[in-house]
Design a protein around this nucleic acid. Structure first.
Lengths: 155, 155
DNA sequence: ATACTTGCAAATGCTTTGCAAGCAG
DNA sequence: CTGCTTGCAAAGCATTTGCAAGTAT
């Protein structure tokens, strides 16, 4: 059996969400979905808009804003706020256990993802100790990466 | 020997910073410092402005914005972005080891601070494993607190 | 056909900045 | 006195929204 591509999966998720909520699949939404997934990195609305307009110059920025909010609702994307200013969007993975945190290079902007079950366990423990019922968390590590092309990469 | 109050300490820090940078101590800056420290909680510019204006109705909002940025530079306050929208400012503590993270109640808005050396150690380890030199981090836990007055508190 | 969507422009919310008048050192 | 500060208003950003025209179902 053929493996569904990440586009196929996301598209299926979108279709289901649309159907369930009486929404429509439009040319713009298809284009934005495809462009977003192809980029395979964290994108700001501005960057995404530029890529989308390379295919269809008539797309308005409000449409990209609205569509990305929709993708977040449909669990196709998630919104991140690593720095002040513009939000970044990243593609959502599969299962229940796709939670991850981020490591961000202050020199070159590279963003790495990681998971650490031991840290998560300790977070639960801290929350319990302080009388909280933990729902979720946000953790970002900032530093500098030592890759050869650091300083040169745009992201 | 008498214990210096947190106001005294902060004021000394401010004076030193001012002198070192050729800046001036004004009536507004004194008032904002005192008001900020007395509140003893995370404050938005808007909340702080309201408190300040209760003492001196003529203070402009730009002054509060500018002054809080100054306090951050002088290491008297730090700026946090727990949610989208307005930033919150919190008073900075003493020594080198006053780093802490936050636990935020989604029901009542309460903000608790905590430190966990073990988590910090694991963060260092993750960074090293991924080839990063860690500078700092941000970690916020979100959940619900089980205090009796939760849901009723404004913060 | 119906009602959701789009693109535009205008509005929003938070924050910053230009400027003339005021004040600290 | 010098030049840092203030308050006001206007500008700046990222994002949202109202609306008339367009389009998916």
């Amino acid at each position: 059996m053929a493996e569904p591509s990440s586009y196929d999966r996301a598209h299926a998720r979108l279709t289901a969400y649309m159907r369930a909520n009486g929404l429509k699949i439009t040319r713009q939404r298809e284009l934005i979905l495809q462009t977003f997934l192809e980029a395979q990195k964290h994108l700001s609305i501005e960057e995404l808009l530029k890529l989308v307009r390379a295919q269809d110059g008539g797309v308005g920025h409000a449409t990209v804003y609205r569509t990305m909010k929709l993708f977040v609702q449909a669990d196709i994307a998630s919104e991140r706020h690593f720095t002040e200013g513009a939000s970044l969007y990243e593609a959502e993975g599969e299962g229940e256990h796709d939670h991850h945190d981020h490591l961000i290079c202050r020199d070159c902007g590279r963003i790495l993802e990681f998971e650490d079950p031991e840290i998560e366990r300790l977070q639960e423990e801290v929350a319990r100790r302080l009388g909280f019922k933990l729902q979720d968390h946000r953790m970002e590590l900032f530093g500098t990466c030592t890759t050869v092309d650091c300083e040169h990469a745009t992201q």
